[in-house]
Amino acid sequence: MLVSIYRYNPEKDQTPYMQDINIDIPEGKDLMVLDVLHLLKEQDPSVTYRRSCREGVCGSDGLNMNGKNGLACITPLSEVVKRNKLVIRPLPGLPVIRDLVVDMSMFYKQYEKIKPFLINDTPPPAIERLQSPEDREKLDGLYECILCACCSTACPSFWWNPDKFVGPSGLLQAYRFLADSRDTATNERLAELDDPFSVFRCRGIMNCVSVCPKGLNPTKAIGHIRSMLMQRST
């Protein structure tokens, strides 16, 4: 199989380039893209990428494979390879540090902006703050996000304004705390999201939904935030 991989070492290369490498894929096995990267690294140890848990939990190996973002460790070759060719690039829209490793600072800055922690100004009870099963259910489809950045880096609005638009991942988390019955800072959180960029730069193209490796729906969460902003202001 022909693998075309994005290479860039700022200490050596003037500009990034694509390197074509032929890889023998063992018969009868459906390898994951991460396995192919391991085979590549055996041939050329200078190939650089992030990986950790190799089972879709840590979110380290978010990559662009044949044009679509996803986690290399849980993306089988049978799902992405077309005409026996695989093109591997770093996540789009973020500065490349080396080869497939990108600088995620901007992504984390947006995450930090939405205050991703419970805020509750009532006196703490002797035990945990309890939630009814119904209230707990509201967090399903929100808390599972692993911050792999596949969604935000697939979003054109995030590409053009990564400093101003919170992005699908950050907004999914923003709604996770807006929807939490134990959080008392709903108004303050909404006031921070009311401007023309933070939420409203979303144009609903749903790239985020189509790439999320955990099957989450940031567009729906953004819709809920919009409704909450409407209810607060009308």
Partner: peptide, 17 residues
């Protein structure tokens, strides 16, 4: 919160509506 003085309503929700 991102400040903007050139958008029509100076507020995302207003512009969206």
């Amino acid at each position: 919160m991102v400040a903007s003085v050139t958008s029509l309503g100076r507020n995302g929700l207003y512009d969206w509506l």
